[in-house]
């Protein structure tokens, strides 16, 4: 039983490290901000969860495992917020190329909001 758990833990740790490696490769090679932020989320959520699971399987003790649950929860709550804020700031400062997007709901929404506020050129700019 103990050996089985250790093997599972080892598999999880290696898989998590491999995801971190993939993220590093993606960050280095991908061409623009959105692609990089896509690559960067791999070790932040799945990779980290796998490594924490591996660590929990290896430790098998009560209080430490609850701390690991806490780390996983923090990471899953904060990583999407941080990624959202960074990419939105990138969009607003013009670092996103609209022609490379398949779906662009933010631009449509901003245009609609501009029209609603009223004014062809008097409305707020999409940056504000």
């Amino acid at each position: 039983m103990s050996v089985l758990l250790d093997v599972l833990a080892a598999g999880c740790l290696i898989a998590g490290s491999a995801l971190a490696f993939a993220a590093g490769l993606g960050l280095l090679r991908f061409p623009d901000l959105l692609a990089r932020s896509h690559a960067a989320t791999k070790p932040q959520v799945l990779g980290l969860l796998l490594m924490l699971l591996g660590l929990a399987l290896r430790l098998r003790s009560g209080p430490a495992i609850w701390m690991l649950v806490l780390v996983a929860l923090f990471q899953m709550v904060t990583a999407p917020v941080a990624a959202h804020m960074v990419t939105r700031a990138g969009y607003r400062t013009g670092k996103v190329d609209p022609s490379s997007l398949v779906v662009d709901e933010l631009t449509d929404d901003l245009r609609a909001a501009e029209r609603e506020v009223g004014g062809s050129s008097q409305g707020p700019s999409p940056r504000s």
Partner: peptide, 22 residues
């Protein structure tokens, strides 16, 4: 850009957490 660095450093934090776990 600053945001690319932000993303990179965020990922670095995750990698360090993984290293501590290992």
């Amino acid at each position: 850009s600053m945001l690319d660095r932000t993303i990179a450093l965020d990922t670095l934090t995750a990698v360090v957490v993984g290293a501590v776990a290992v």
